[in-house]
Amino acid sequence: MSEQLPQTNYLDPEVLQKLGDLELIAREVVEGLRVGTHRSPLRGFSTEFAHHRQYAPGDAIRNIDWRVFGRTDRYYTKLYEAETNFDCFLLIDASSSMNYASGKVSKLEYAKFLAASLAHIVLKQRDSVGLSVFDSAVRAYLPPRSSMGIILQIDRLLRDIKPTPRTSIARQLHDIALMMKRRSMVVLISDLFSSVDDILGGLDHLRFDGHNVVVLHTLDPYELKFPFQGAWCFEGLEGEEPLTTQVERIREDYLASFNEYLQALRDGCTASHVDYTTVDTSLPLDGVLSEFFFKRQAAMNGARL
């Protein structure tokens, strides 16, 4: 791919949506993460030496190759190839509720970009990426592999799927857990619109199987802030009865209920040792991923966020 995206706001979800080429999107997103001030998110996953590169401020001192320094009088950092025995499973919720978009990018599309970017990152460090798409049932399951073709598979699967209303997440997570052969890193990308107990039940199953579970709770900014004005009729995407109301009069109740749900979910995840992150679909992908990895690194180092 010789195409280059413009440097300005090229990670804006709406711009990415226009690109259409998911592989290109993933590459640009990840390349964006690897340059500039962002620290490499995958450091620590790799053990095999790959090549040297000139020391840059921010690199760990311990990785400086002192032998090369002795010979050349310059600082070089040793870089390692990733290990190939690491599997990352991306679980994408493709239920009807994921189709909601207050702007131009729906939660499902954002999830697609997110999954592709993560897959690209994982594949870049020579690990394997598996994929599962579910709504009311598990619609697709791709066992882990280490080729870039999986990014195209993600696109194809999500395009072909016809979303259906989801009744439970736990059941799908149970099913997927049964399909997974090895302990893996499981990244769940979903809006998690179900009961907290149901969600935590599914996540617990994955945790009990020894998987390292990461939840990217993908939410639309309108769902987070409920900024409607005037009279609106809300038509449920999953077959619920429509509700017509004066938004100003119910916003307080909605936000209270929503935040209660988020807090319960966050507390449940913390208790189950599940990495939980709320993802706002209006924000650029690189920022979201950078923040995610920063938090993850901080958690691994035992820092408080």
Binding site: S97, F234, T245
Partner: peptide
């Protein structure tokens, strides 16, 4: 006013389905 109601698909219906509905009826 009633006919001026705008329609939107909505995913987070579970948060509108309890007290909010009661409140809407009151309104």
């Amino acid at each position: 006013n009633r006919y001026r109601v705008r329609h939107t698909p909505w995913a987070a219906m579970q948060f509108l389905n309890r007290s909010v509905r009661v409140r809407s009826r009151q309104l």
